[in-house]
Computed example of a mutant assay.
Amino acid sequence: MTKPIAVIVGAGSGLSAALARALAPDYDLVLAARQGARMAGVAEATGARSVTLDATDAAAVGRLFVELPAAQRVAIYNPSARVRGPLVDLDPDEVRRATEVTAHGAFLTGQAAARRMLAAEPVDGRRGTILFTGASAGVKGFPQSASFAMGKFAQRGLAQSMARELHPQGIHVAWVNIDGAIRNPGRTEPPDAPDSMLDPDAIAQTYLHLIGQHRSAWSTEVAVRPWVETF
């Protein structure tokens, strides 16, 4: 039997790689990212197909989903961008670009994924799951991080709106608040603070849980944070 399809937009060596490893046993994977080289190792290790993609290009995002051999059962949006600095010094064009990646790209992926799912017949009343990788910036804005807060707040609102519209049509939508630093390759924790950063493989297990939730108890938002993170 052919495996269902899972699409991960924004593929790299950290959380995206962990998600790919977690999904690979049960799904045919499609990894999409702006820089193809970042996907090569993950694609080879998981048997995934890789696609070079600008997540802010509406036509390209649409083609990604339309050209799938069947409707995807899972779609995950990971990309984000930010411009740091005092509000009065921020370059408006750089801020616009950052919000395009974090918010508008999420909309494009969510829209294209939902269209493909809605056109397919449901399985046991379900058409699939769309997940957005959020951050604590979508709950509280931090100093000198206006562009990131703008993008993540918009992304969170998008997920809430999509959930209310699409849940009754069999599509599970959720936003995952990554509330803390991720232990990505090249980032280490202080020796005296074990597990003070989020383990990407542990985060991936939360995504798997969301994908497998019974529709009578779908989550729309989940926050994950290290045990020592302050609230």
Rank of each mutant, 00 (worst) to 15 (best):
T2R: 03
K3H: 03
G10V: 01
A11I: 06
G12M: 06
S16P: 06
A17G: 02
A20M: 09
A24M: 04
P25Q: 04
D26M: 04
V30G: 03
R34P: 12
Q35D: 06
G36W: 12
G36P: 09
R38M: 07
V42M: 02
A43V: 00
G47I: 02
G47E: 03
V51N: 08
L53T: 02
D54H: 14
A59T: 05
A59K: 11
G62A: 13
R63S: 10
F65E: 00
V66D: 15
E67Q: 14
P69S: 04
Q72W: 09
Q72P: 14
V74L: 11
V74C: 12
I76H: 15
A81L: 12
V83L: 09
D89R: 15
D91F: 15
E94L: 03
V95P: 10
T99H: 08
V101E: 00
H104D: 04
T109K: 10
T109N: 10
Q111E: 03
Q111R: 09
A113Q: 02
A114Y: 11
A120E: 00
D124L: 08
D124W: 13
G128L: 05
L131Y: 14
G134P: 12
S136E: 06
S136L: 12
A137P: 03
G138S: 02
K140T: 03
F142K: 00
P143Q: 05
K152I: 00
F153E: 01
A154E: 06
L158S: 07
L158P: 10
A159W: 12
S161C: 11
M162L: 13
R164M: 05
P168S: 02
Q169F: 14
I178K: 13
P185E: 00
T188I: 14
T188K: 15
E189H: 07
P191Y: 12
P194S: 13
D195S: 13
P200E: 07
D201P: 13
A204L: 13
T206K: 11
Q213D: 05
Q213G: 08
H214Y: 10
H214I: 02
R215K: 14
S219G: 10
S219F: 13
T220W: 14
R225P: 11
R225Y: 15
R225G: 07
R225E: 13
W227D: 01
E229T: 01
E229D: 01
T230V: 07
T230M: 11
